[in-house]
Amino acid sequence: MKKQVMLAAVLAAFSGVAMAEEVTLYTARAEQLIKPILEAYEKETGVKVNVVSGGEGPLMERLKAEGTNTPADIFMTVDAGNLWQASNMGLFQPVKSTALAANIPANLRDPAGNWFGLSVRARTIFFNKKTVKPEQLSSYEDLADAKWKGRLCLRTSKKVYNQSLVGTMIADKGVAATEKVVKGWVDNLAAPVFPDDTKMLEAIDAGQCDVGIANTYYYGRLLKKSPNLQVGIFWANQKQNGVHVNVSGAGVTKHAKNPKGAVKLLEWLSSEKAQKLYADIDMEYAANPKVKANAAVASWGSFKSDLINVSEAGAKQAEAVKLMDRMGYK
């Protein structure tokens, strides 16, 4: 009798483990930015979310090597270029979800449903308030003009954000025109290119250079830390194609063990509630148009964004890298 009770208890314990639903996520997004959102999901649904974080390249290679035996249900990364590449490598499976289609605008997701943008990041122009008036600024292309000689700061071309920016430029204007712009940037540099946006914004603040290109959330973080920042934001290319935007996003892996759970998580991530978290935690823009930007972010004003489908930037990324190599943009 006693034995049977124990057995039942053990069985119950086991089945309990087996029944708790799990979703495993590989993410190249910084863990500290995504964890709070996933914890909210775990709390709400009781589903356990396993997270493996790492560089996007190694994670993709890992997915490829694991093949059908991958534990990953979702692959999440920043930048359309990476998402495009992952889908090109056949790491995703197409997802049909009315909720996702409704929540995420078409230009922020893969037409075939391989991946979905979950947050939007704008890359625009920043300037030193003491030395530059906003009227002097107009577009990314204008920063190649000789009047900015010795006044421009840029982040390294190794960062995918710049590769996407140049990639969309190639898609928009063609190779020759883009080469001229990049060459002009390189000629105008006030200092060797920076390893990250934060350092570059600080350089503008300190007066080492007058203008530069960065993602807005880096500006937001820096403002939080030092409110007296002498750096202003300028929405680029408003008279042309609009501000360059990119996404962070995710897709369901081809060999997901729990594809249903994965889709459920993605749908939840695109919901207004989760999108609000996205907007607040990292000062990005929500992909879901129904969600307003965080108050501080909203104070920078609204802007017209480049409507070109972000996946086009991904397709042009390798070309952009080679172009920047040729022009000596390191």
Binding site: G55, E56, E61, Q85, K158, Q317, A318, V321, K330
Partner: peptide, 23 residues
Amino acid sequence: VAVFNYDTFTSAIYKAWFALFSL
């Protein structure tokens, strides 16, 4: 070398992999 943005073999390796998508 990444902090210095100084191109050596390793940065070329990373670039070929992550930017040119050619492992």
